[in-house]
Structure formats: C-alpha cells, structure tokens
Design a protein around this nucleic acid. Structure first.
Lengths: 153, 153
DNA sequence: CAAAATTAGATGTATATACATACATTTGTG
DNA sequence: CACAAATGTATGTATATACATCTAATTTTG
C-alpha cells in the first residue's frame, strides 16, 4: 500500500519527510504482521527478540545488559521481559559468580524449542512476502544507514 | 551507525532479513530523536501525531475514527491519547449532532500554538540530519513500498 | 417499524516503552 | 583499606500498544 493510502494524506513537505513517515509506518507494519504469527506461541515481539538474542550465544549465557545492548529498541526494559519469559520457563536466571551484580540468563530447552517453531513460522511468512530482491534489500540497507548517518557512534 | 554495531550482531541470514531489522531499528532511532525534542513541549510522539492530523484539517473537526485512520500506528488507542490532550486543553471534545455516537475533536488555539513551535523545533532537527538527497529519499520510499507490496489493501 | 446487526467510542487488561529511582556490588582513589 | 563513584539490575510511574469487551446510537432487515 502506498503511504498516501495508509495515512490518508497527500501533503508531504518533501520526499525526505515522507521517508521518515514511511520508515515509521513500515516498522509498524512489520511488527504487526510478525506479532500476529507469534501470538500462536504466546510470545510478544520483544520476548521473541530476547529469545533470539539468547540463542545467538547459546550455550553461553548473557547478562541483562548484554541482552539490552542487542535489542532493536534500546529503551526496552529487559528485566521485565525476562520476568515474563521466566514465568513461562523459557529462560532461567542465575546470579553471576564473577560479579554478583550481574544476572545471567540461560535459554531453556523449552525456550529453544518454542523459538525454533516460531522462527520457522516467521520464515514461512517471510518467504511469502519476499518482494525485495537481495540487491534491492542491500540498497534499502544502505539508504537507511545513510539516513542515520549523524547518529552518535 | 551500521546495523551490525547497533545490534552487536553480524549474523544476518540475508540482506532481506537484515533490511527488516534495519527498518525496525531505524524507526526506533527516528522516534527516539524526535521524542527527545518533543519532551520540551511535554508532548509524546503520539500526542504530536494527533495534533498534526487535526491541524491538517483545521478549522474542520475530525471524529475519533478519522484520526485513527490517519495514525502511523494503526493500533493506537486514540480516545486515550485524546484524554491526555484534553487535560492539557490542547483539544476539545464535542458530541456530533449528525451522529451522536461520534465524538468530534477540535484543536484549540493553545494546541495550534504548541504544535507550531514543536514543529519548528523538529524541522530544525530535521535540517541538521538531512543526510538523504530528495532523490535518495524517493528511492527509499519506493523500496519501502515494494517491501510492503503484499499488504492487504 | 421492531429486532438484529453494525458502528463509534470508551474502558479494561496485559505487556511494552521511556525514564527515574533505589539497592547492592564492584571499582577507583586518597 | 575506607569511602566515593560507577555499574548492574530491579522496580516505580506515566503513557502507549494490542486487543477484548461494553454501552449507546445508528443502520439493516425481515
């Protein structure tokens, strides 16, 4: 859908301003289609993201701040997301021996299993909407990174 | 910042998958830099968005569902955002005469004034980070719309 | 035209975001 | 080594998201 139809607006002051709105809308769109799939697994987008990060380092553990650093949305409140995953026994908390301030998070067998099946479902969705070629995706990545150029590194 | 550095990850299964994460991260990045500016005006991103929509039709009024249809994030709970704007006297609610189910929302003088000054601040921010040319922005818009191609219209 | 279905908006609940603060542990410095 | 500063995590608060439910008004229909 064209942005004009999605927002019922035709008044954009420039292509640059329109691009900002387009990025925001596209992110909402992506989140909402994936969340719909994750619902079958009783996972939120953010819970899935934490599980995915933990799996990336499995069987190593990660502490809360290391997870936070890898989150897409940096202001995510990771301890609270962990709370919900822990209740569902998808992760385990242990106090770090080397630094007792740190809480180490381990993904459980159950967590790995639910991550695997949900990822496979998301990949199927992804294949269905493979509208962009790899070359176009590369171009999109370059443009987004150029947009964020001034970001404090 | 490159996505690899933002997410501390180098394992992307494809440029297409990376593009999804890049869109999500870019949206978070855009929201967080604009929210920082809006804080001076005691406005959230969503409150600002509602005011902007109302101004677009000013001096005409809009009912709640017409605002909702123009929101970037379609799942926004517009009545509650209106609640907060109403407390700050930036908008006014009136029951529609033609259809008493509808609530008509009017932006107040105070709302217009705060919108004007916050918009001018955001535009300044925008100028500072004008990294994309109009041509690149157009290309970005086209790629995002191609990505969303399968969207049910 | 009365009953059923639909629509508009408000409200409730769980989770998340954004940010502040509190507490415990660790590190740095005199 | 004591004590201040910094760090890691948990927790509190306001607002938002996502979605369900409720009420009132309107439209459809039989």
């Amino acid at each position: 859908m064209k942005l004009e139809n999605a927002l019922l607006s035709t008044k954009f002051s420039s292509e640059v301003q329109k691009a900002s709105l387009n990025v925001l809308y596209s992110a909402w769109w992506l989140k909402s289609i994936t969340s719909k799939e994750l619902k079958d697994f009783d996972l939120t987008h953010e819970q899935y993201n934490v599980l995915r990060i933990l799996k990336g380092k499995y069987p190593n553990q990660l502490c809360v701040k290391d997870i936070a650093r890898r989150m897409i949305e940096k202001s995510s409140n990771v301890p609270r997301i962990i709370d919900r995953l822990e209740i569902k026994k998808l992760v385990k908390r242990t106090v770090s021996e080397s630094d007792k301030r740190e809480t180490l998070i381990t993904i459980t067998k159950s967590g790995l299993s639910i991550l695997e099946s949900s990822t496979s479902k998301l990949n199927k969705l992804h294949d269905c909407m493979q509208n962009l070629t790899e070359k176009e995706a590369l171009q999109l990545n370059q443009l987004l990174e150029k947009m964020r150029q001034k970001e404090t590194d």
